[in-house]
Write a protein that binds this DNA or RNA. Sequence first.
RNA 1: AGCCCAAUGGUCCAAUGGUUAGGAUACCUGACUUUGACUCAGGCGGUGCAGGUUCGACUCCUGCUUGGGCUACCA
Length: 555
Amino acid sequence: MEAKNESLNFIEQIIEEDLKTGKNGNLVHTRFPPEPNGYMHIGHLKAVFVNFSTANKYNGKTNLRFDDTNPAAEELEFVESIKNDIQWLGYQWEDEVLFASNYFDRFYELAIQLIKKGKAYVDDSSAEEIATMKGTPTEPGKESPFYSRTVEENLDLLERMKNGEFEEGSKVLRAKIDMANANMHLRDPLMYRIKKATHHQTGDKWNIYPMYDWAHGISDSIEGITHSVCTLEFEVHRPLYEWFLNELEIFCPQQIEMSRLNLSYTITSKRRLRKLVEDNFVSGWDDPRMPTVSGMRRRGYTPASLRNFMEKVGVTRRNHVIDVSLLEFSVREDLNKIAPRVMGVLNPIKLVLTNYPEGQVEELTMINNPEDETQGTRKVPFSRELYIEREDFMEDPPRKFFRLGPGRNVRLKGAYIITCDDFVKDAEGNVTEVHCTYHPTSKSGSDTSGIKAKGTMHFVSIEHALDAEVRLYDRLFMDEAPDSNKEKDFIQLLNPDSLSVIKAKVEPHLADAKHLDKYQFMRKGYFCIDPDSKPGQLVFNRTVTLRDGWKKKNS
RNA sequence: AGCCCAAUGGUCCAAUGGUUAGGAUACCUGACUUUGACUCAGGCGGUGCAGGUUCGACUCCUGCUUGGGCUACCA
């Protein structure tokens, strides 16, 4: 029946094993739990992809739950942008958007339960004292002087902490576990700290806020999450995750850690991305060079290309650095199928067809996308004076140059074969004009000339061309792993040429192009309309170049 | 330093106690081409080291090495 035996990633293997044993009543329920403290970037994308696509594969569900336990860092703006990004990627969460803050009352009840069990206590020590008493990985910690408070005293103090009677930093609630444990996270971890902040969901109701470890597992448990996927650095938190849920005697989901996504020539440190924005190294969080979802969207990456990329990357527990060329491949692969072809000359030089009648204009019919004939055709004007790409003419070309040079023939895409007769230089010796004759019987589609042309070139008619600003992007960093370079600050590794803005000439068909419309400029790459674009003032972003065998060979 | 995790072509991901360890990408060839794109065909290139178990180890075990994580009132 099945054509091939697809290999499973390690998470799918766990799930299929659980399905076999009926562990979770044959349910698969995942969640994507971002903290709303910034914009989503390509690193988050992997978590989105794994959680949603895995659940989807097993007819399960995926919750979107904001891990909003730290009001000092979080904002509503980020809640909205994250929701927007997830939907743009093509995923839909189960039911309503959830918040850890929905469960604050429940967390509090459970904390009381833990105190009554003698498994939690209020500690008046300062942050520094707690850190000192925690010991080090090689030395055991020491018990706090407040370790042995009575249950009654702890209950009273917690309630007064909740009621706002104490200053921030003066008291915390800690779980009573094991101050000598080799795992530092088990040395009486904090459950609550006092924060007199206004929360974007709960307002001023709370004066204490739960820590990640206290909130996360309980949230997963409440929602009936079966497989709680997170990244490798949370591995050492798992014993604590399980300790809380077991002490509370409530459902314990399985936490599964996977490696986080690292991309070559890219940073995903939120702190560093913020510095790029705040110090104006980029134009904003949605600068097309940023690895944010909003940046990639503006750059012209498609949701399908990003999902395909994630699929290719795979899911494992090893640290890796994915080559950015795999991302670029995925983007080209999708754009090749969907992007209409147009002609745009990025670095124009004038070409005159000396034997073409002055004032004559032909409307050429061109195919929009050879990969998809349903995209139809369009009209492209052709006349005596054209722009071609400056690099497509060489005064003294090498043998295997397929383009224009004195005495050479070339096909103008969708039009005629031309022969180069002459060229004009200015006082500095720069070529300013190329003169050719066209062969009237060589018209595209009805060529009876018998003339051979090695190459095909794009062009635009000078009279009909539109001006366009084109923003060319290159990688933001020159270093393969800017996040982990120990010698240099990441700012020093920025590529000074990551953006160049040029004035280009494009075919008139593009006058109506709209925000984020995607095109292939033939022979030049994939481009999309930037939000800065206005009618009469076109602005394009280059999403990615085409593969270029010629350039590679000659560089 | 202690504890935990990982180790397969340049990169990423598969596979098996037993012939030539497979795919993707990258790179190189060639074919095709009215995009030097796309497509197609081919090539290059790999089990970290040392022991052990076994008839046989890339796979299991031990040690080592290398890389990563943990010592926040962040998540």
